[in-house]
Amino acid sequence: MLHLVNKSPYDSTGLESASKYAGKSSGILLFEDGVYAAMSGTAYEDRIKEIMGDHDVYALKEDLDARGIADRVVDGVKQITYPDFVDLVEQNKVASWS
């Protein structure tokens, strides 16, 4: 499965819930304000690394660029574009968390 998260982890429980209910083989795609969870040097960095222990974590490059944080993404988070987003949804069932 693929879990979409579109809210900042400081604003919403979406990412925490997605990671809690997601099976270990499932991926998490951060987009819109969800991409702030992927930023390094933050209070959330340790937590996102923990989540990455169980899940592939993707962040949408278009939204990272828009927010000026594409050069500060935690190592191991996979930056993807909209065409990759489509591929991931093609390969996985998808649930949207906010």
């Binding site: 579109n6 987009f31 819109e32 909209y82 489509v86 949804v89």
Partner: peptide, 19 residues
């Protein structure tokens, strides 16, 4: 919200891939 924009970009990317 950005949702409509995201949906638009997703739909466009999917269509351009032939879906």
């Amino acid at each position: 919200h950005e949702s409509s924009d995201s949906a638009y970009h997703f739909a466009k990317a999917a269509l351009e891939k032939g879906h």
